[in-house]
């Protein structure tokens, strides 16, 4: 098992106050890492540090390094757009761009310069299949992405990320607005996808982490309290805070 990310002494500050404190963590390839913790614990900031989406905000500062395949992604030489193509992201709220289903999926590939119709068609079918939504939309690819249901929209967003052929998929509470059936479909897709991708799943639903994650990390107030095999975190956590959170004492 190779390591995708090595995170060394990573600190993140927003307007001078620390949001992530001295984070050290390795993320293994082709696994699902679940990230749990109460609101404001830094889970989302951690996720957005991995594709440098945090930089769209003003007033941020980072310390330490995040190595992806051995290369520091905070190196000034790094092409940020290229990094984001390798590290795809699904947001908490499904956000299809206001264009057709087809155009949503090929948005990333087109940016990479792929313009052949047959190549794009192929990518659309493959990505929508991988996101478990092909059968529902195959006859209406010209329909606006905004006309789909919430659960379908979120799977469309997943397909859109898959079409870029990323190495890593970051998911930021992807099921927070979805019904249980849609949630199950996303979870099914993830367990298949981990064979090809490294997946990091931030979730407010601890049961979801227990269901799909291979490893689970617990964040609290900007610090990672504990990381380990999901089974171990949920049955015999080493730290009292983890135990309290999982059993619902707080959060």
């Amino acid at each position: 098992m190779s390591t995708k990310f090595n995170i060394h002494n990573f600190n993140f500050y927003f307007n001078g106050s620390p949001v992530l404190k001295d984070l050290n963590l390795d993320v293994t390839s082709n696994e699902i890492l679940g990230v749990i913790g109460p609101a404001g614990s830094g889970k989302t900031t951690f996720l957005r540090s991995l594709n440098r989406m945090n930089e769209l905000e003003a007033g941020i500062r980072t310390e330490g390094e995040i190595l992806m395949d051995g290369q520091n992604i905070y190196d000034p030489e790094v092409d940020v757009a290229g990094l984001r193509k390798r590290v795809g992201m699904v947001f908490a709220m499904p956000v299809p761009l206001p264009m057709s289903i087809y155009e949503n999926v090929v948005y990333g590939p087109r940016l990479s310069g792929i313009s052949s119709k047959s190549r794009l068609d192929e990518l659309v079918e493959k990505s929508l299949k991988e996101a478990f939504i092909w059968d529902e939309v195959r006859d209406r690819l010209k329909l606006s992405g905004l006309r789909l249901s919430g659960g379908q929209q979120q799977r469309l967003c997943l397909a859109r990320v898959l079409a870029m052929k990323p190495e890593v998929i970051l998911l930021d509470e992807p099921c927070s607005g979805l019904d249980p059936i849609s949630t199950a479909k996303i979870e099914d897709a993830l367990t298949v996808l981990k064979k090809e991708y490294t997946i990091i799943l931030v979730t407010n639903n601890t049961k979801q982490a227990a269901r799909v994650a291979d490893k689970t990390a617990f964040f609290l107030m900007g610090e990672m309290i504990e990381v380990g095999l999901t089974r171990q975190i949920f049955t015999a956590p080493a730290k009292k805070e983890t135990h309290d959170y999982i059993t619902g004492r707080f959060g």
């Binding site: 795809g88 967003c157 859109r160």
Partner: peptide
């Protein structure tokens, strides 16, 4: 604002985001 975020997250440059979204 989320449209910009999505576009950037898919590896678009600022100009590509302006032009396409």
């Amino acid at each position: 604002k989320v449209y910009r975020e999505v576009s950037f997250s898919l590896g678009a440059s600022g100009w590509q985001t302006v032009k396409k979204v």
